[in-house]
Amino acid sequence: MTRTPPETITPIRLWRWRRNPLRRHGDLVEAWVVLLTWIFVVLGGALAGWAAASSVDSALAERRDQVHEVRAVLTGPAPKTAPSRGGYDDDRVWAKVRWTDGKGAVHTDKAKVSPGTPAGTTVDLWTDGTGRTVPPPASMAESLLQTVLTGVLVAQITGTAVWAGGRLVCGTLVRRRLAEWDEEWSRVGPEWRRLSGGRG
């Protein structure tokens, strides 16, 4: 028996999209499912990532608008040693500070300073609209990094979810096609064996 050399076998590309006697309705449906899945993976992932990045960017910009930097003065000397609270705390200590806002109102609160900072030292801190001290807002570089990472992560998660859904649908179509083949073979098989003299 002569074998056909592998290099002479030409694969039929996009056979599900071409009219041919072997193509079934389920093959065309599967081709559409695959095409639409990849379109939604790319476009859906990109749109979801862009929406998430825009939301994060807006939230960070809004927080920058709600806080402002003030110069405060230590009302007393800061402790000389920082309390030991594990490796997650920095080496600074809490000290009482006082500042005057733009309306002339005097505020007092606590801020983190270096141990042993003398009274009267000027420190920079951030406050919100109520005059409470708050952590500093993210810098422009930090905001850009958070925005980009959020967009990429959401785009990847969305694309993966869509791709998994498409694979699930394709798997269902393949199982249905195999069941149809079994059903047809149960009808054709006995006749085929009879015509071939019982072989196979």
Rank of each mutant, 00 (worst) to 15 (best):
G87T: 08
G87H: 07
Y88S: 08
D89P: 00
D90Q: 05
D91Q: 04
D91R: 09
R92W: 01
R92C: 03
R92A: 05
V93M: 03
V93W: 06
V93P: 09
W94M: 02
W94H: 01
A95V: 02
K96G: 02
K96V: 05
K96D: 13
V97G: 04
R98D: 05
R98G: 01
R98L: 09
W99P: 14
W99F: 15
T100N: 08
T100P: 08
D101G: 07
D101A: 01
D101N: 09
D101Q: 07
G102Y: 04
G102M: 01
G102W: 08
K103L: 02
K103W: 00
K103M: 00
G104R: 01
G104P: 00
A105S: 07
V106D: 00
V106Q: 02
H107K: 01
H107F: 14
T108Y: 04
T108P: 00
T108W: 02
D109L: 04
A111Q: 09
A111I: 09
A111V: 12
A111Y: 06
K112H: 12
V113S: 10
S114E: 13
P115F: 07
P115E: 02
P115K: 10
P115D: 02
P118D: 10
P118Y: 07
A119I: 12
T121C: 12
T122G: 08
V123K: 12
V123N: 12
V123L: 11
D124H: 15
D124P: 08
D124G: 14
L125K: 10
L125I: 14
L125V: 10
W126R: 05
W126V: 07
T127M: 14
T127P: 13
T127K: 05
D128G: 15
D128E: 11
T130Y: 08
G131F: 01
G131D: 05
R132T: 08
T133M: 06
T133H: 00
T133R: 07
T133E: 10
T133L: 04
V134F: 06
P135D: 14
P137V: 10
P137K: 04
P137R: 06
P137G: 12
A138R: 13
A138N: 13
S139R: 12
